[in-house]
Amino acid sequence: MPTTLPLELPPRVWDDAAMREALRARDIGAVFRGCQRYGVSQTRLATATGMTQARVSEVIRGRREVEQFAVIERIAGGLAMPDDARRLLGLAPARERRTAPEPAAFELAAFPEILRVYPRQAGAAEEIQRAAVAAREIDVLAVRGLGLLALNDSLLRASLPHSHGGLGLRLRVLLLHPEADAVEQRAAEIGESASALAAGIKLATERLAELADSGRDVHVFWYRMLPTWRVIRIDDVLFAGTFTPGWEGHESAMYKVTRTESGPLFSGLGRQVEALLAESHCAV
């Protein structure tokens, strides 16, 4: 293993929203660029992580990606990442938590991450539409996205590319793989035929492909896991329901969840979406 000289950065580096996004995406180039914003040179990054300065430069410029687990582990150690940053990268904790459990309990009691409860998705639809038009990122975890298609108008407007007066929204939609074993189980749970459910998923995918064809930043992924959570994340606000036997997804109650420092739901559901994205087939 190369010789490393660990680098201790101010804790706020790891609390920065862009940095947390970079960690979550395992985008080491963006992590390095984040460190540079705090005055860390490429040479210092190199000595901290056991890489050559030339390699650090390539990573920063996006010419090379870091994917090897051992290298990511070495970078996390070299940058003395706190445990919550390591977790975002998908690594095990290395040392004691920065915050004791008591402050987290106080924070969640005083500033809960669940801000509202809707008895059905329909109640949340208006709020979701209003939030979507000012959004930068939307992630949807659904089965066939019926509710999503109902929101089509607002998504159409929000997903206009920046050059056409829109905000340049990135829309990522996870739908159940039409050929997954789970299609049959889910169809039985809601009293439909598997072929009708699969056809519905393909139809939704085609509609979203039309958006992608018109130059919008829209991607559809097909996952194979048994549908469990229904998630619509709009920037830092997330709407969560569940797929349960006997209920259509839109019949589930929905929580409106916001990103907080210690909230387990926002971070857990966000991680679930990222994990499914990583192993799903990109259909559009």
Partner: peptide
């Protein structure tokens, strides 16, 4: 300012 609360946004 967008306020997210119990009664919506």
């Amino acid at each position: 300012r967008t306020v997210h609360g119990r009664d919506g946004a």
